[in-house]
């Protein structure tokens, strides 16, 4: 459990020294990826998965993606095993590919998006400050909750509270997670209160510019869309039945 939490923290934490993607582009792409997860088209899922992996290789977020996948390894094994047993390898592929795309895609989004820039960008789209801050706060708070939970879990382990089957200690751990969310939220609310959030229209102390990274990311996803439309136009590719 501790190793899972540590990896969630590593895989979801913004890396300021590595790369910056324009938040609106990041948000658009993550929504696009989600959109393509809905239909049950095998080749489309395979294509999307390859592009997500390719993008993580190009922009060197391999470590972040692997961290998340490692953290979810028990879930992947259980989910993969169950879907294979009850639905065969095709169902297993459909479920796991969605799982991988979601995990890796989110890892890339979290590690490359500056939460404060995301708020500023959404505010530029005339979204109210309070609404614009929600995704940004998620980006700030999720790695922190993972870190808090890890610290508490480690302490519990040393106290001898974590032993036996997972059904014994998992409820305790979930209780910690919920307590941590409540605890963090309470202080966050106080902090926003003292920092004057929401009292008036905010100014922005810096502008977010498009960089070559954004352009190359855009090229990757335009290529994906082009391939998708082409394959669709010439009929569904006949792989995975």
């Amino acid at each position: 459990m501790s190793f899972m939490l540590r990896r969630i923290y590593d895989g979801f934490l913004f890396k300021p020294d590595r790369f910056h993607i324009h938040p609106l582009l990041g948000l658009t792409i993550i929504l696009l990826q989600f959109g393509f997860l809905i239909p049950n088209i095998n080749w489309s899922l395979a294509l999307l998965l390859s592009f997500v992996i390719l993008e993580n290789i190009i922009f060197r977020n391999i470590r972040g993606s692997l961290s998340i996948l490692w953290s979810l390894l028990p879930v992947i094994i259980i989910l993969g095993g169950l879907t294979f047993l009850f639905g065969g390898w095709l169902l297993c592929f459909r479920v796991l590919s969605r799982f991988f795309i979601g995990a890796i895609g989110f890892s890339f989004f979290f590690t490359s998006t500056n939460p404060s820039d995301l708020t500023r960008s959404l505010e530029k789209l005339y979204l109210g400050s309070k609404v614009a801050l929600i995704p940004s706060l998620a980006l700030v708070i999720i790695p922190r909750i993972a870190k808090d939970s890890e610290d508490t879990f480690n302490t519990l382990r040393l106290r001898g509270e974590i032993q036996g089957g997972f059904y014994r200690w998992l409820p305790k751990t979930l209780a910690i997670l919920i307590a941590s969310v409540i605890y963090r939220s309470e202080f966050l609310a106080q902090s926003l209160y003292f920092r004057g959030f929401g009292i008036q229209k905010r100014t922005h102390y810096r502008k977010i510019k498009m960089t070559w990274m954004d352009v190359s990311r855009l090229v990757i996803w335009v290529t994906f869309l082009t391939l998708f439309i082409t394959f669709n136009y010439y009929g569904t590719l006949n792989f995975f039945v």
Binding site: L137, R195, F197, G198, I199, R202, H204
Partner: peptide, 15 residues
Amino acid sequence: TSLLVEEEIAFVLEN
């Protein structure tokens, strides 16, 4: 409320 030091300090001024 932010992840970066400069953002943390600037946040209150932006507000």
